[in-house]
Nucleic acid binder design. Structure first.
Lengths: 205, 205
DNA sequence: ATTGCAAGAATGTCAGACAATCGGTGTTGA
DNA sequence: TCAACACCGATTGTCTGACATTCTTGCAAT
């Protein structure tokens, strides 16, 4: 399952393309029953679609659908940032700062993969410290479904630097325990990320 | 899968109890590969847990976990009610009213199953008309995970009548297009439902 | 009473097979 | 020429049966 997930995240499959079970079996070196178990899991996570008698395929992500995901993600992420501000522990705060530094470094490079990874780290720390594991889990599921964009939008001109400024704001708000500011900063960041995603989609980056 | 889901919803399995694949196979009249596919789906929906080499089991729902679910559910539900207020169509509004009447009738009876079903209908209409299918989908997943409570709390003394009053408030706010009021009413309703759930859990109804 | 071991049970995985279904292709008839 | 139809390959849905691995449990020995 992890191999499949990774393949999907890395964009190895064309959106809309069908996945042939027998092919995947030989490629992954596993049997069809095992593969089908994995496919069912991924289907439940909405990473693939399985239509009866037609088999699994990569769902084509329309901007409409992506918008819906971003909206729910905003709800969760803003809430998480707010809660994080009032309840994060000093030790985790240091971790968060470290991951911010890591992103800072990545942002000054041109390695958009590193940028995506470190930015994801930053957010996963916030989500992990919001005090609600369900919120974290749902959020992770949503982010996975728009992983399609993460590489593209980050490679837009100046997006990394802009993102860095927004993330600093978030960190500062959380560090100072200002819940409202954390929410606002988080919302701003997400909206910009969404706009960048749309740009990268329309622009066909 | 539907049969299994239904069995879980109806509380046929003891929380924490293990599910034996071979038993389920004979009971459902299907083979192990098919069963395991279904189990993987249910696992991804968090309706069952599968620990490696120990197999599937019904997760024991602690109140802590339930609280986490209720918190996220509140975020989504309140948002849905608010959006619904500003965008529901007249036709759907009539549907919503009809489902409110249905609950009204059920509430005056002692059929707690009918109460649960009609109340679920009411909410599913709101979620279906919030304009965000992802929000609806995530919400449904969360509600499924606390279905454990739905029958119990509704059978508490006076809960149905109280619930009815709260739902009327929600309906009125939505009907008048008052987004803020809809959010407030929805929040109030959920918090009361949560309190009832806790009562029913502690009281061991 | 505790520890170690062995038998049984259950899971993880595989191979192979077969019916049902879908999509495209070629044929036939108007 | 074009449309409808029948056919066929490809793919999925499902089953049976098997085997290794792992966990659990009960028993025996210390």
């Amino acid at each position: 399952m992890d191999k499949l997930r990774l393949a999907i995240f890395s964009g190895l499959f064309q959106p809309g393309s069908r996945l042939i079970e027998s092919q995947l079996c030989t490629q992954l070196g596993i049997s069809r029953p095992s593969l089908r178990e994995a496919l069912r899991s991924l289907e439940a996570e909405r990473l693939i679609e399985i239509v009866p008698n037609r088999g699994p395929s990569i769902p084509a992500l329309t901007w409409e659908k992506a918008t819906a995901i971003y909206e729910v993600r905003e709800l969760l992420e803003v809430e998480a940032a707010g809660r994080c501000a009032s309840r994060i522990r000093p030790e985790q705060l240091r971790e968060l700062e470290k991951s911010l530094f890591a992103f800072e470094e990545a942002a000054s490079s041109n390695d958009s993969l590193a940028q995506v990874m470190t930015a994801a780290d930053f957010y996963s720390i916030i989500l992990a410290n919001c005090g609600n594991p369900v919120l974290e889990e749902v959020h992770r599921g949503l982010v996975a479904r728009i992983s399609f964009f993460r590489g593209r939008s980050m490679s837009l001109e100046g997006r990394a630097q802009s993102s860095l400024a927004e993330m600093r704001e978030i960190f500062e708000s959380i560090a100072s325990g200002d819940e409202k500011a954390a929410r606002k900063a988080s919302k701003r960041h997400l909206l910009k990320a969404k706009a960048a995603a749309k740009l990268s989609m329309d622009g066909g980056v």
